[in-house]
Design a protein around this nucleic acid. Structure first.
Lengths: 197, 197
DNA sequence: GTCTATAATACGATAGAC
DNA sequence: GTCTATCGTATTATAGAC
């Protein structure tokens, strides 16, 4: 889990911290995650994490923005693919859904997004989280051209998968009920989510 | 928001703490909420909160159990009502959905549940959260007799509403996109969620 | 570009009085 | 049944060296 310890340029270092922070924030939440855990996961010292981003809050905002951008980029790729294949609404939904499930392989993106959403009471993080959420909604409605009804159902399945990842339901895959639930949400792609770190 | 300051029996006091804690944990999360915030919301001293429940963790587990039990009780009432009315699957789903939305009036239940789900990495809280989640799944499948597909879709809409409450989307009700999204999820019951504390 | 040392604070928990 | 006082610890952030 440790990155290398050699010197890097600041932008490179920011990138590795961002990746490490997405995982740690994703698992422990904005308040629960410590800058020291993030530093260790990135293979550097705690003060340096703070130095490069200014504050824990600024780092979390950077993680939020980056996760949301990654999700939207993947959605746009899926949308382009569906349109190139000439598939209709059904195909578009399937393509977007596939991207969403596949993004779950690096847990960081979905988990840190949900941890941001759950922080609505924080004046600055809450505001950023709401803005990000609406960006995603606008993508579904305007770019992907989904009806309100379809966009809402799609989002619901997304939130369900995110919550299941967050509660770490895959660790209970042995349990019959847990397995039924996971299969219902992920379909045949479930194995993807069991093994990944 | 303060409860009264008179003496109470221990069980009564535990009840008011539980209600206050559900709100505070719901808004700030397990780690972010402080026992002092909870104490102030309940109108007592911080050490007394700890004294009555043993630890912050024990208090959170009590909140989780109580929230889950309230949700299941409401679901059971809705199910009984639907069956008494002789409605089919559609009516059952509508009845359960209504209960879910109405439970959102006291934010505590949905918010603290989601904050528990998001704590999957914590050995003890995560385990309790997973067990609670599966209890709800089993209710939908076995007691309410929903198919896997219907239960999954119902749960998805529930998670979507919970996340929207958690990110505090109702504060943006003026925004056209936010309003469209909220109306899609809550239907005509939306006003219920805007005014409530 | 990165570290060590440390200051400053906030928080959960305990002790003990009333 | 409930409070005040306080200890011990964990954590963010800063200062300054290399």
């Amino acid at each position: 889990m440790l990155d290398d310890r050699s010197r890097k340029t600041a932008p490179e270092r920011r990138e590795s911290i961002l990746r490490a922070a997405a995982e740690v924030f994703g698992r422990h939440g904005y308040v629960g995650a410590t800058t020291d855990q993030i530093a260790k996961a990135a293979g550097i010292s705690q003060p340096y994490v703070v130095r490069l981003f200014g504050s824990k809050e600024a780092l979390f905002l950077a993680v939020l923005r980056s996760a949301k951008d990654e999700l939207l980029a993947d959605f746009r790729a899926g949308l382009a693919e569906a349109r190139a294949a000439g598939s209709g609404i059904e195909g578009t939904l399937a393509s977007l859904g596939d991207r969403y499930v596949e993004l779950a392989r690096q847990r960081g993106v979905h988990l840190s997004l949900l941890q941001a959403f759950v922080q609505g009471a924080d004046p600055v993080i809450g505001a950023a989280a709401r803005a990000g959420y609406l960006e995603i909604w606008r993508f579904l409605r305007e770019e992907a051209d989904l009806t309100v009804e379809l966009a809402k159902d799609f989002l619901g399945q997304g939130m369900l998968l995110s919550v299941l990842l967050s509660v770490d339901m895959p660790v209970l895959d042995g349990d019959a009920d847990a397995h039924e639930l996971l299969i219902a949400v992920c379909g045949p792609k479930l194995p993807l989510l069991i093994e990944s770190t």
